[in-house]
C-alpha cells in the first residue's frame, strides 16, 4: 500500500494549502445541515406524545453528546499518531481540538440539564451517563490545563498526547464503573446495528443535526489548525509568501 498521502498530510505546508478550499466546504456543509436540521427539528418534526415540545432539545443535546465522545477518540488516535510517527500536525490537532471538545461537552451537559428539568423534574441527577460525561469534561479540562502550563512547545505537545492516551484507556473503565454504580438514563438512541426506536420523521432531522455538528467541528478545528500552523511556521518562506499575497506584510 502506498503511504505517501499519509506523509503528505503530515506536512504543515501541504495541509495548509489543501485545506484552503476544503475549509469553505466544511463551513458551507455545516451551515446547510444545521439550518435544515434545526428548522426541521424545531418547527416541523412531530411533537413527542409524552414530553410535548420539550423533547426538541434532543436535536442539540444528542448531537453534542455524540460529538463530545468522538472528539475525545479522535484526539487519542491523533495523539498516538503524533507520538509514533513524530508528526507535529497530529499534535496540532490534539491541542486545537481539546478546547472545542470541552465546549461541546459543556453544551451537552447544559442542554441535558435543561431537558432534565421538565422531563425528570430536576436539573441534575447522579445518573451513570451524566456522571461519565461530567468526568469526561473534567478530563478535557485537565488536558487543556496541562498543555497550557508547559512552556516548551514540543514538551507540551508530547505530554498532552500521553495524557490523552492515558485518558482514553481510562474512559471505558470510568464508563463501566459509573454505569455499574447507577443507571437511570435511557439507553443510546442511535446505534450502528439497529434502527432507532423513534419515529422516522423524528430521528431524521436528528441525524442531519449530527452530521451538521461533525461538519461544524471539522470547520472549527481546521480554522484553528490553520492559524496555529501560521503561528508555528511564521519564520518559513512559504508563510511569508502567503502573507505577502494577502498584503498583510
Amino acid at each position: 500500500m502506498n503511504w505517501t498521502w499519509f506523509h503528505k498530510w503530515g506536512s504543515p505546508k501541504w495541509f495548509f494549502q489543501k485545506t484552503e478550499s476544503l475549509i469553505y466546504w466544511f463551513g458551507f456543509l455545516a451551515l446547510i445541515f444545521l439550518v435544515v436540521g434545526l428548522v426541521w427539528g424545531l418547527a416541523f418534526a412531530p411533537e413527542d406524545f409524552k414530553q410535548g415540545n420539550s423533547f426538541r432539545i434532543f436535536y442539540i443535546h444528542v448531537p453534542s453528546a455524540i460529538l463530545a465522545q468522538s472528539i475525545f477518540l479522535a484526539m487519542a488516535i491523533s495523539a498516538a499518531v503524533g507520538l509514533i510517527w513524530r508528526m507535529k500536525l497530529a499534535h496540532v490537532f490534539v491541542e486545537t481540538a481539546a478546547p472545542i471538545g470541552a465546549s461541546i461537552t459543556l453544551l451537552a451537559l447544559l442542554t441535558g440539564a435543561i431537558w432534565g428539568k421538565p422531563t425528570w423534574g430536576t436539573w441534575w441527577v447522579w445518573d451513570a451517563r451524566l456522571t461519565s460525561t461530567l468526568i469526561q469534561f473534567f478530563l478535557y479540562l485537565g488536558i487543556i490545563s496541562l498543555h497550557q502550563s508547559i512552556e516548551n512547545r514540543d514538551t507540551a505537545s508530547k505530554a498532552t498526547a500521553i495524557a490523552c492516551l492515558v485518558g482514553v484507556v481510562n474512559l471505558p473503565i470510568i464508563k463501566f464503573s459509573v454505569n455499574w454504580w447507577n443507571t437511570l438514563h435511557q439507553p443510546a438512541t442511535f446505534t450502528l446495528t439497529e434502527s432507532p426506536a423513534m419515529a422516522t420523521e423524528m430521528w431524521v432531522p436528528g441525524l442531519i443535526m449530527v452530521l451538521g455538528f461533525y461538519m461544524l467541528f471539522a470547520y472549527l478545528v481546521t480554522l484553528r489548525m490553520r492559524s496555529e500552523i501560521l503561528e508555528r511556521e511564521k519564520g518559513s518562506a512559504w508563510v511569508k509568501a502567503y502573507l505577502e499575497k494577502l498584503n498583510v506584510l
Binding site: 468526568i135 496541562l146 492515558v166 485518558g167 473503565i173 464503573s177
Partner: peptide, 14 residues
C-alpha cells in the same frame, strides 16, 4: 500541583 490534581482526579473515579 494544581494541574496534577485536575489531570489525575477524574482518572481516580473507578
Amino acid at each position: 500541583n494544581v494541574v496534577l490534581s485536575l489531570l489525575i482526579m477524574p482518572l481516580y473515579v473507578p
